[in-house]
Structure formats: C-alpha cells, structure tokens
Amino acid sequence: MNADRPARLRLIALARDPLAWFTALLLLFVFGMDELRPLFAAAFPTLDRPIFTQDSFLALTVAHIELVALSSAAAVIIGVGAGIFVTRSWGREFRPPVERMVAIGQTFPPVAVLAVAAPLLGFGQAPALIALALYGLLPIVQNTVAGIESVPVSAREAAEGLGMGAARILRRIELPLAMPVIIAGIRTSVIINIGTAALASTVGAKSLGTPIIVGLAGFNTAYIIQGAVVVGLLAIVVDLAFERLLRFVDRWHDSPASRRTPVLAAHG
C-alpha cells in the first residue's frame, strides 16, 4: 500500500510522524554530543569539561539498551509464562501466591535489590539485570492474566466445542486476543526499566546513568543533563514504537473492510 503513494506524500507523512522526529533527536544526541560542546560550554561556563567523555554516548546507549533488553526479555518470558500458567485450569490455585510474589517484586525498591544483590553477585551487570527483571514483572504478569481473562467466554466455549485442543486454543485464540493487553503490559514494564536501568551504574554496570552519577558526584550539571536527556529520549522513542506495534497487533479492529462499512450501509 505504501508503495503506491507518491514519494512526496510519504515524506510529508514522515515529517508529521513524532516517532521519526524523536528518533532523529535521539540519534543527534547519541552520535553528535561532541558537536554540542559549544552549546554546553556556553550554558555552563564554569565547567572545565562540559561534555562527558569517559565513554562515548554510543557505547553508553548500547550498554543501556542491552541492560533493558536482557532484563525485559527475562521479565517477558517469566511474566507471560506465569500469566499463562495461573490462567490454566491446572494452575489456577497458584494465582494468588504468584500475584503476591510479583507484587512484592515491584514494591521492593530496585535500589534496595541492587544493594542486596551486589555483595552476593559482585558488581557489574548481574545484580542490575536481576533487579530490573524483578521490578518489571508485575505489569507483565498482571496484563497477561487480564488479557487472557478478557477473551470472550463464548469464543473459548465455541473453540472447545468445535474440537480445538487446549494448546491450540491458547496459541490461536487466547494469546492473539490477549496480545494487545499483554503488549501494553510489556510497554509499561520496558518504559519503567529504561528509567530504572540508569540506577545500574551505582553497582558498576555501564549505562546512561553513568554520566548522571558521575555528574552528581562531581557537581557537573552538564553531565547530568546529557545523561538525562538521552535516557528521556530513549524512553520516548521506545514508547512511541510500542504504540505503533499495538496498532499493528490490533489491526483487525480497524481493517479496510470496517472503514468501508458505513459507505455500504448508506447504500442499504
């Protein structure tokens, strides 16, 4: 469909797309932080070194994304798995304890998890990954359960009555119908994780929190702003990308045929 549209129209659509704008802005900060030196020098004339240079922002961003991706992947696998498990007929009894455990995981501040995990697992990525994965579980489990429970009872009964097995009902009916809700949960979890991952630098994992923490320790406001702006933009870009994904997953609600319906109705 996109291919039919003239290039000019596609360009206009791109120019109006906030995802494109914020991605461009993020790339500008990640790759072009050095070019912004005059700007920061002017804003903070008292600072000797107005740009954080111990690591490139590209390396910091990649490390940050790696932390978020690994911990969120673990949270998704465990969280969706647990959500599926407690909605099966044979796993229903485990629902209250699982939900309670997950809720505790979120109540416990990540800083505290880091503080406890660091002496046990050593400094670096490992404690950070565990703290982030635990912290991100709640919205994923909750939304997986809510999504599966929102599947119409009649659809499930019909599927069973027509001779679909339990695994097929899960794969072809329950999960696809629950997917928008599950993805919304993953979105919340990942966005929280992008912010929280900055704390990982307190236990020695490299992340976009590093310039913030170095800046806080050395009273370098410019470093703090640089770290914060990139983390913020990263969160916005990922959030907008999830919004796009959600629209795609839910596309049957708004298929071309449904947009035609009013016209057909008008003709009788």
């Binding site: 009649s154 009964e157 019909a158 599927a159 009555g161 001779g163 119908l177």
Partner: peptide
C-alpha cells in the same frame, strides 16, 4: 478422544462465540 469426537459433531451456541480476530 474429546477433540476427535467434537470434530464429528457441529456445535452452535446462543452466544455464537465467533473468533473476533
């Protein structure tokens, strides 16, 4: 096997239960 039995018997219900997606 229940699935095999059910595939040999059509099933229609009041709440219809079409798969919305």
């Amino acid at each position: 096997k229940p699935e095999v039995l059910r595939r040999r018997m059509g099933y229609a219900i009041q709440s219809i239960g079409l798969f919305p997606h």
